[in-house]
């Protein structure tokens, strides 16, 4: 295609975005828009699926039948959300299994929070409350994302996730109001998950080179730092309400800005975990790879049987 044609197409494309007209799968789109979306949506899908593991770790040890059912349903939702998101990447021409292979060979990233271990039952509370809380803050604006299939998947996901954070906070509240042992368990979980939760919003805006373009394309609606601040502002009073202490000595309310000031994030830790050196990166990827490899004969058998049946029907 001639260069001026592309420029014209790009102009028309941006005009649609500026007028809040959604982009649909078969519409023309710049290559980079497609690539950025595939990267972002598949990372999001991987995060849902890898995210099943730290919580799945406690399903067989849940302390009562109600908690067991809730946790099962929640982890199952995450599988569903991964699936909706992989479907959205498939509309962009990215085959689901290829995308998953990128996860397994380490080329694709996922949310670094899931590389932390879940050591006690309170971690189920902390994950629901903090991790899902942070995820919701990221996700609600994505319901208005410019790419139709992603926006529609996010609407469904946000609707379903509304119980996830609540169940986590309910676990934390119960522990915080429980015996001293339980309260200590809750505080310990908050201590371990607080900073990784803040890291979930990604690098500071100054170190986030894609943000400007993504905001122009309305793939992203708020910057990392805006969302992080919003999360801190909302979550700190919740911790206070149930009598837990946020593990940040620099945390204090700033009358002037109307926001909480908080201490520096350990970005060395963040990058170490993102680059594969977190406490559980290897376990998580190994578990997902094993699931795929162990399932290969099953998927193959189902295809073989379906083919036999089709032949029978045809004859």
């Amino acid at each position: 295609m001639k260069e001026e044609n592309i420029e014209e197409l790009e102009r028309q494309f941006q005009e649609k975005i500026d007028n809040d007209i959604k982009i649909e799968p078969r519409d023309w789109m710049p290559d980079n828009y497609r690539k950025t979306l595939i990267r972002q949506i598949s990372q999001h899908a991987h995060s849902e699926v890898v995210g099943m593991l730290p919580e799945g770790n406690w399903i067989t040890r849940a302390p009562n039948l109600r908690r067991k059912a809730v946790l099962l349903a929640k982890v199952q939702d995450e599988a569903g959300h991964g699936l909706y998101l992989y479907s959205a990447t498939e509309t962009l021409g990215a085959d689901r299994e290829d995308t998953i292979d990128d996860l397994h060979d380490g080329t694709a990233k996922y949310s670094s929070i899931f590389n932390y271990p879940t050591l006690t039952w309170a971690d189920m509370g902390a994950i629901g409350w903090l991790v899902d809380g942070a995820a919701i803050m990221n996700q609600v604006p994505l319901c208005r994302c410019s790419y139709g299939p992603y926006a529609r998947a996010m609407v469904r996901i946000c609707k379903e996730e509304s119980f996830h954070q609540r169940q986590g906070f309910e676990i934390m509240t119960t522990l915080a109001n429980g015996t001293p042992e339980q309260k200590a368990m809750a505080q310990d979980a908050l201590n371990r998950f607080w900073w990784p939760a803040l890291m979930m919003f990604g690098p500071n805006d100054a170190d986030s080179p894609h943000t400007a373009q993504s905001m122009k394309w309305k793939i992203k609606r708020h910057t990392n730092d805006e969302l992080r601040q919003q999360f801190v502002d909302v979550t700190v009073p919740q911790a206070e309400l149930i009598g837990l202490t946020v593990p940040d000595p620099d945390l204090k309310w700033n009358e002037e800005t109307g926001h909480y000031d908080f201490g520096p994030i350990n970005w060395d830790e963040f990058w170490a975990v993102v680059n594969g050196n977190g406490p559980c990166n290897k376990e998580r990827i190994d578990a997902r790879r094993k699931a795929k490899e162990d399932g290969e004969w099953v998927r193959e058998a189902a295809n073989a049987y379906a083919a036999k049946k089709r032949t029978k029907k045809a004859s």
């Binding site: 099943m52 399903i59 067991k68 982890v75 199952q76 599988a79 569903g80 699936l83 578990a287 099953v298």
Partner: peptide, 15 residues
């Protein structure tokens, strides 16, 4: 059966 959660042969079957 719940031991399978997160380890199924394909996402659909996990669900």
């Amino acid at each position: 059966l719940s031991e399978w959660c997160g380890h199924g042969p394909v996402l659909e079957e996990d669900i």
